Simulated assay, not measured.
Amino acid sequence: MQEQSGRERAYVYLRDRVLSEPAFTGTFLNEGELASQIGVSRTPVREALLLLVSEGLIEMVRGRGAYVPPMSGRQIGELMDLRGVLERHAAEKAIDAGNVPIAAMTATLESQEALAAGAAEDHARTFIDLDGTFHQELIDSAGSELLSRTYAGLRARQLRAGLSALFGAPDRKRQVCTEHRAIVDALASGNLAAASAQIDAHLDVTMRILLRG
């Protein structure tokens, strides 16, 4: 039981703290250092790494260990395509059911706007965490547990992509807030076509920044 708990702790730490940081892209991970940082032995760290290998987030290189590969242009495109499919579907379900979480999404957006006045390096992680919350709130409003779990499973990739995009364009935080506001306004109007168009526009801007970088 303790080993399972240690593996879970290691998995969450690696997924949400290490793999999401652009600085680790293209580097090899040290199991011993990670074990010390997390407060577990090397065994649960190794098990967590193997889980992440199975999810395609890291690679094991013979003689070198765990490698964090950069996201390819194809992977970035596939991530944005999948996000678009899931978010447009959630928007349709929420609008049809009259269950669009306008209040929750607006509150999250206002928290982002409060951070947008800072320099790009200030509060970047908090801003991107809020970004994930904003989109997950829309997904969860569809009322599908499988949809919510599927979207949440993209978290590590989204955090890494979001942070990279944040530093890949000047004043990106303010732009994100403007794009999120357009999504909220379209959802509030009940216009699915407009909401879908704003979701696509937001994802397209992010993808172009990432591919340019």
Rank of each mutant, 00 (worst) to 15 (best):
D122Y: 08
V184T: 05
T27G: 02
V68C: 07
L29I: 02
A116V: 05
D140E: 14
S141E: 08
H89K: 13
S148A: 14
A142N: 06
R17H: 11
G98M: 04
R172D: 06
Q198Y: 01
A97S: 14
L147K: 04
E33S: 12
D200C: 09
A103H: 14
P22R: 00
A91I: 06
S36V: 01
D122I: 00
H123K: 14
A197N: 06
G168H: 05
P22W: 00
C177M: 12
A201T: 13
L34H: 08
Y67H: 11
L29S: 02
H202W: 05
M1K: 02
I95H: 09
S72K: 06
Q2S: 13
K93W: 09
D81F: 08
G77R: 15
Q75A: 14
A197W: 03
H202I: 11
A48H: 04
V176R: 13
G26D: 05
D140Q: 12
Q198H: 10
M60P: 02
Q198I: 02
L50N: 11
A152T: 07
T108N: 04
E78L: 13
L187G: 13
A119I: 00
P44R: 10
L79P: 01
A35W: 04
E137Q: 15
C177E: 12
G32S: 14
A116Q: 09
R9G: 12
F28L: 03
V100F: 10
R208Y: 00
E3T: 15
L187C: 13
E137P: 02
R74Q: 10
Y11A: 03
A35K: 07
M1S: 13
E179V: 09
L51A: 12
Q136C: 00
M80R: 13
S189C: 07
M105T: 03
V100Y: 11
G190N: 12
I139M: 01
F167V: 02
L115T: 03
R15Y: 07
T27H: 10
E21A: 15
M1W: 05
D140F: 01
R172T: 02
A97D: 09
I58E: 01
G63C: 06
A117Q: 08
